[in-house]
Amino acid sequence: MSHSADSYYVPHGSHWPIVASVALTTSVVGAAMWFNGTGSGPMVMLLGLAMTFFMMYGWFGTTVRESLKGMYNEQVDRSFRQGMMWFIFSEVMFFAAFFGALFYARVLSVPWLLGEDVSTHLTLWSGFTETWPTNGPNNVGGEFQTMGAWGIPAINTLLLLTSGVTLTISHWALKAGDKSKTVLWLAATVALGAIFLGFQAYEYIHAYGDLNLTLGSGIYGSTFFMLTGFHGFHVTIGTVMLFVIMLRANKAHFTHENHFAFEAVAWYWHFVDVVWLGLFIFVYVL
């Protein structure tokens, strides 16, 4: 291995990005066809997703190999860290859009419909009185009930908070060079994430089946499912990433000072955790 550790590693040519572009495009074309009711849409989308996974396996595999070969000096490592930080920041802003929608509806538009904006209320929706949670003056999606905060959601909060702790313990273990402890606590974190997802799936089934709370339940259903749904999607990704990290830790890919991938996933997991706290407070409790 001739790469000198003192210079910044610049890879030469890679075909993964173009594969990634094709894969992404195929996925969204498939999804768009599906939305339009074209029969082959789901198949195209699955093909695209399969390509995406293939690409991720290949691309990440390449970087893992390079990392193991010691081609990344400290500066490269810093680039990865900063890149991950900014990526997480962009994710924060993505969620901010949906939280913004929730706040706007609750603080402004629903009260306007309810009568604070007198002419709107009198002229168009004089029969509308129901406050948050609401599916709007047309009772879109029919009567529904909301999910109580202190049942499954509270348990889920505990699960996620605990998973933050187990992950940190694992990190300490990694820093102390204790491989088996690292893997063990990572496994615990993965398990907590999986249980969380299980509960959420159960909650969704309950919402659709028993409460008539659906994505179509007016603005309440829209914000509820989009926020919890995107969060759940992120938990899923996070859990998969934790799982991969666990396998890698088991293969002793990380050293006590060089374990960017571990840290990146940990940050991501904490971010998902914090978003959940926001959700728990603003979607379930308040």
Binding site: F35, F94, F95, A96, A97, F98, A101, Y104, A105, L108, S109, V110, W112, L113, L124, W125, T134, N135, G136, P137, N138, V140, G141, T214, L215, G216, G218, I219, Y220, G221, S222, T223, F225, M226
Partner: peptide, 24 residues
């Protein structure tokens, strides 16, 4: 996020931007 809400308003029955469902 904004265009995602457009997408779900059109295809997934959400009401972000429709007063009838409490949106705006």
């Amino acid at each position: 996020g904004a265009v995602t809400m457009l997408l779900t308003d059109k295809f997934a029955a959400t009401s972000f931007f429709s007063a009838a469902g409490g949106g705006d």
